[in-house]
């Protein structure tokens, strides 16, 4: 996950998971990102073309086309994966913001509560959390499959994103807060009007990084019988026995998705830099 380094002068957040985000200065035609991204796309196109059986069938099955190559949204593993990822990151951001604010709160009860939440959640593997929320908590509340997946992912990633928010807020120079207080704002006013808007800028790249990590981790929900990309692939492989071909396609699709989004995050980070330099 993202490790955040606080620097008073530069407001820079360093990411240890750096492989995800292509180096900006690597602009040669054969950058690592280009090789992997276009290589994956080429494989995705060429393999089904060269041997339609089974590659193009695998592709149809996991992405969700019917016999006539019409897109069937209800049966699409790709759509399911996106659904889980987008909903989870949305709720995780919400939880994360609350937890981040809670972690810097001066009210010791809230502070303690949020810290305990972060400690507990970060100490339990996501896979165990998924099983726990889906099967163990089903004893008390009935949560339908995809909501259980989204809730578990959001609760888990909420803790990590909460830490990003906390570090982001704390990375804003103390002078900002002092100046706001000196101008007569209350502490909460200062946070909402002065600190948070600046925090957003700092935390966006690591949050983008979390989004990519979440996209990859969403493959874990396949154990809850959620028919995402991986589950569709496993369903195909387990009846057709084309294990190699199926998992190759599944891996390629995940790779294209994560590489695509990591590029977006990198571009976003670049824009932020330019904005920051201008202001």
């Amino acid at each position: 996950m993202a490790k955040i380094e606080e620097k008073q002068s530069k407001q820079k957040i360093e990411i240890t998971d750096g492989v995800l985000i292509p180096a900006r200065d690597d602009s040669s035609i054969f950058s690592a990102w280009r090789i992997s991204f276009y290589g994956a796309i080429a494989a995705l196109v060429v393999l089904p073309f060269l041997s339609p059986e089974p590659y193009s069938h695998v592709l149809k099955f996991i992405i969700g086309f019917d016999e006539n190559w019409r897109f069937d949204i209800g049966n699409s593993g790709l759509v399911k994966t996106f659904e889980v990822t987008v909903l989870s990151i949305f709720f995780a951001l919400f939880i994360g913001l609350l937890v981040g604010l809670g972690r810097i709160s001066r009210i010791s009860f809230i502070n303690r509560l949020c810290t305990v939440y972060v400690e507990v959640i970060r100490g339990i593997p996501l896979l165990v959390q998924l099983f726990y929320i889906y099967y163990a908590l089903a004893k008390f509340v009935k949560i339908m499959d995809i909501s259980a997946a989204v809730i578990a992912m959001a609760i888990c990633y909420g803790a990590y994103i909460g830490e990003i928010f906390r570090a982001g807020i704390q990375s804003i120079p103390k002078g900002q807060m002092e100046a706001a207080l000196a101008l007569g704002m209350s502490r909460s006013q200062a946070i909402y009007r002065i600190i948070l808007p600046q925090t957003i800028k700092v935390v966006l790249p690591p949050i983008g990084n979390e989004f990519i990590a979440l996209l990859k981790d969403s493959s874990l929900v396949s154990i809850l019988a959620v028919s995402d990309l991986l589950r569709r692939g496993r369903e195909y492989a387990s009846t057709s026995f084309y294990y190699f071909e199926t998992y190759t396609m599944v891996a390629i699709i995940y790779l294209i998705l994560t590489l695509f989004f990591s590029r977006l995050v990198a571009i976003m980070e670049e824009r932020m830099k330019i904005n920051a330099n201008q202001s």
Partner: peptide, 15 residues
């Protein structure tokens, strides 16, 4: 809906 184990499917049915 496909499950990794039949027991998990039965549990979901009961739920």
């Amino acid at each position: 809906k496909t499950y990794d184990e039949i027991g998990l499917a039965i549990e979901d049915l009961a739920k």
